[in-house]
């Protein structure tokens, strides 16, 4: 197998971009595909979580966390997933995925919605669940802040759209987790991004990895 070499490019230049990302409890967290339907008055045990349950679970799970981390923008609620475990199937439980970029720790808090509290918490390093919507945006911001890549992205957008790029909201983004056996992305939260431009073309981002923990961009060599 060929080695994958990581090049850290210009770490300092982008450090300020994401420092201000705060978890804002009550903003509903990331949009959720499964919460699109009107809430049933009282969901059946096997129904997906309702938008209200997702919101409540997110609030309860982030209340239970070390608030200092949230306030400092180091920890963030990624999303809330229904607990689909087979034990105690009748209970309505939600799993809140919280990532702390300072310690590269993933915490999954299981919220019992009837009791309104966290009933289980599991934390560990080296586990990277898929990127959230907010992380996709942040990855694009890191790339835009990169001197050369940012310039390239703006130029490509200008060509495709005939007007300047205003923000990452102008781009269609899809993120995938990138991990490597060695190097920064063995521990950090690293995201590979697909970027679609308004003319239907995609940027060639296959070698570009946004490191959300280090707040910098790696360029893969192979």
């Amino acid at each position: 197998m060929r080695g994958v070499m990581m090049l850290a490019v210009s770490a300092g230049a982008v450090a300020t971009i994401t420092a201000a990302v705060l978890l804002l409890p009550g903003d509903g967290g990331p949009p959720s595909a499964r919460a699109e339907l009107p809430a049933a008055v009282s969901p059946a045990p096997g129904d997906p979580l309702t938008p209200d349950e997702i919101r409540r679970a997110g609030d309860i799970a982030t209340d239970a966390g070390p608030r200092a981390h949230f306030a400092a923008g180091r920890a963030e609620l990624l999303y809330v997933e229904r607990d689909d475990g087979k034990s105690d199937e009748g209970a309505r439980r939600a799993e809140a995925y919280v990532y702390d970029y300072g310690t590269d720790t993933l915490t999954v808090r299981t919220v019992d919605l009837a009791r309104g509290k966290v009933v289980r918490e599991v934390s560990g390093t080296g586990t990277q669940p898929p990127p959230s919507k907010r992380e996709e945006t942040r990855a694009a911001e890191l790339i835009l802040a990169h001197p050369r890549l940012g310039e390239g992205m703006r130029a490509a957008y200008q060509r495709a759209a005939g007007k300047p790029l205003r923000s990452t909201a102008d781009l269609w983004l899809r993120g995938l987790i990138y991990t490597a056996p060695r190097g920064d992305c063995a521990e950090h939260r690293c995201v590979r991004l697909f970027v679609r431009l308004p003319d239907g073309t995609f940027l060639d981002t296959s070698r570009v990895v946004a490191d959300l923990s280090a707040k910098k961009v790696h360029i893969l060599e192979w």
Partner: peptide, 15 residues
């Protein structure tokens, strides 16, 4: 290589 996505428009997927 590092021209990365700057040249992406070249291998555009149209339509």
């Amino acid at each position: 290589a590092l021209a990365a996505f700057v040249i992406a428009a070249a291998h555009a997927t149209p339509a």
